[in-house]
Design a binder for these strands. Structure first.
Length: 591
RNA sequence: GCGGCGGUCGUCUAGCCUGGACUAGGACGCCGGCCCUCCAAGCCGGAGAUCCCGGGUUCAAAUCCCGGCCGCCGCACCA
């Protein structure tokens, strides 16, 4: 049965609450916009999505390691990252039409004056002096207010240092880059991943799980040497990845008014230079595969390149990965940003730590180094009491430039004192250079877990007559199998059937299968309950089990049943689930 | 944040306009019992509602008024 777009959201919200997927947080106190609880079933599904993500994006190449860093972040870190400045945008509101604008943008548009870094009252002054009005209706604008989308907190309960809840996990990876790099014994390329909560104090969150004030991010910063990226990417590109089909809408196409994505193979993205770095293409292909694997159809996934002004402050190129939903249309579930050296550079600047890495040349390079070394005795004669200042000056000068100037002009002049060649000892020496330091480039794939969760549910949701069936991939399903007794009555044979079903259930739990047991209501009702939360298989113990130790196994999506021996239930399940393991069913305790 | 509309058991809803017999009714779901050979069957019973919150008007408020919270839609914002 075809679902109408309007119904699907209601059906899903109803199901979510009824069966324990998710619901608004703090409901008994009226709720808070943008905050959601995950229920018992939702938590299981969510964890399975994380596992799949870890497999496809983190473990499958051996290039990425996972860390965990705090969500509470000292102010300086987000100052360095540029977030604090980005979040204190001055907002002004029109008193007539109620529209809200970035005050600095309006001022710049109407006066040409750049007010970046101005205080709120200084911007206000400029606005009054230049009679800046509402660009939409010409109405009076209010004094700008800072709109900070970072959650503020204090570190330490008494006279605490200012801090924020992190708006992205990324900064933890940049700040601890050097430690991780050392742990992996100085190897590039290196990805550092993190799965965790972040907070963004959104002005008006809506659309249930799509826009949250607190959500789970799954992302990694991938550090590499840009000069080697092509050859390195080729090393990790296998046939499957090369042939992965991606739907991409480029910025160029967007500005020409095209809104349909075209199909590319991964290799074409690299060769046609659609991506500014080959690693972007590799991770986009992996991300595409991941979403397909958990159940989003390939043609419902696309990549949209962001236009320069749509990009975050740190990004050289960004592709949003979007999934089509019936309720919200195309929603962004992941972003791939080429952050270049932006973040490391900023942390080098603010922390004064050396976050560069050493690159050894294949062969050391011999270089003739010519230096002019100051001769203190001669300089004292020439400089007299200016000696100290001159020496300080010389040591801060670039060696090569000093030498060049001295040789071409015959002297250098510092603080009014001419120093000729005789004031220096000229040295020429051959130096072996074994390598150089550089700041690695970074590509960042970043996934929003709750959005993926929502998109997945929407795609999995189907109606069979008026029954809901959540057709999710068995690997994502909250439970792998349901176990039922066909009947649960009071006759002796009913008791036997129930006992066998219960022991089967317990044996499966012990074998680390996530099993679900239910004996309430009719068998049809129990199948329906299991279908609603997406349990892919159901094992039913019936009368025939008493005779020949066989049970039925039913597949959720087709309701097909086959009869198997109860002893091979585990192996059959593993086969269906594509898992491996061991299983022992102990019948002895039950009659 | 602005404007419009809305908020009654877990869910969907009746009641609100026209204040009073509303101890807030129903359906589905949930729980217990009976029944029991495969897709939400039936019968019996049960639990379950701060009528979103606070204030006001009134002899009397789910109902009228004001403020707040939350939701939906539009505008704005969105790393």
């Amino acid at each position: 049965m075809e679902l109408k777009s309007r119904d699907i959201y209601e059906i899903l919200s109803d199901l979510a609450k009824r069966r324990g997927l998710f619901w608004p947080s703090y409901e008994i106190y009226g709720g808070v916009a943008g905050l959601y609880d995950f229920g018992p079933v939702g938590v299981l599904i969510k964890r399975n999505i994380i596992e799949e993500w870890l497999y496809w994006l983190v473990y499958s190449t051996g290039l990425v390691v996972e860390i965990e860093t705090p969500i509470i972040t000292p102010r300086i870190v987000l100052k360095a990252s540029g977030h604090e400045d980005h979040f204190t945008d001055p907002i002004t509101e029109c008193t007539k039409c109620g529209r809200v604008f970035r005050a600095d943008h309006v001022v710049e548009e109407q006066t040409g004056i750049t007010v970046e870094g101005y205080s709120m009252s200084d911007i206000w002054k400029v606005m009054i002096e230049n009679n800046v009005r509402c660009p939409e209706c010409g109405g009076q604008l209010t004094k700008p207010q800072p709109a900070l989308l970072l959650f503020k907190t204090e570190i330490g309960p008494y006279k605490g240092a200012p801090g924020y809840i992190r708006p992205e996990a990324a900064q933890g990876m940049f700040v601890s880059f050097k430690n991780v790099f050392t742990v992996v014994r100085n190897k590039l390329p290196l990805g550092i991943a993190q799965v965790g909560k972040v907070g963004r104090n959104e002005i008006s969150p809506r659309q249930s799980l799509i826009r949250l004030r607190e959500f789970t991010i799954m992302e990694f910063e991938f550090f590499f040497d840009p000069e080697k990226s092509y050859e390195e990417v080729m090393k990790y590109m296998d046939e499957e990845l090369e042939e992965e089909e991606l739907f991409v809408l480029t910025a160029d196409e967007k500005s020409r008014g095209i809104d349909r994505a075209s199909r590319y193979r991964t290799l074409e993205l690299i060769e046609e230079k659609i991506v500014k770095n080959p690693w972007m293409a590799l991770w986009m292909a992996k991300g595409n595969r991941f979403l397909r694997e958990i159940g989003i159809p390939g043609d419902k996934i696309r990549f949209e390149e962001k236009l320069p002004w749509e990009r975050a402050h740190y990004s050289e190129q960004t592709f949003d990965q979007q999934v089509y939903t019936r309720k919200f249309g195309w929603i962004e579930v992941a972003g791939y940003s080429y952050r270049t050296t932006y973040d490391l550079d900023r942390h080098i600047e603010f922390s004064r730590s050396d976050l560069s890495v050493f690159k050894r040349y294949k062969k050391p390079v011999e270089k003739l180094v010519r230096r002019a070394i100051p001769n203190p005795i001669k300089i004292r004669e020439l400089a007299k009491d200016k000696m100290g200042k001159i020496m300080e000056n010389i040591s801060s000068m670039d060696q090569e430039a000093l030498y060049q100037e001295l040789m071409s002009k015959g002297y250098i002049e510092i603080d009014g004192v001419k120093l000729g060649r005789e004031a220096f000892i000229i040295k020429e020496e051959k130096v072996k250079i074994h390598g150089e330091k550089f700041v690695p480039h970074v590509v960042e794939p970043s996934f929003g877990l709750e959005r993926i969760f929502y998109a997945l549910l929407e795609h999995a949701l189907s109606l069979e007559k008026d029954r809901i069936v959540l057709k999710i991939n068995p690997r994502i399903a909250p439970y792998q199998v349901a176990v039922f007794p066909l009947v649960a009555g009071s006759k002796p044979e009913h008791r036997k059937i129930v006992d066998i079903a219960r022991s089967l259930y317990r044996a499966l739990l012990k074998a680390r299968i996530r099993a679900f047991y239910d004996e309430e209501g009719s068998i049809g009702r129990r199948y329906a309950r299991a279908d609603e939360i997406g349990i892919p298989f159901a094992l039913t113990v019936d009368y025939q089990t008493l005779e020949d130790e066989t049970i039925t196994i039913r597949y959720r999506d087709t309701r097909e049943q086959i009869r198997i021996s109860i002893h091979e239930a585990y192996d059959k399940l593993l086969e269906l689930l594509n898992y491996k393991g061991k299983f022992k069913l102990n019948f002895d305790k039950y009659p």
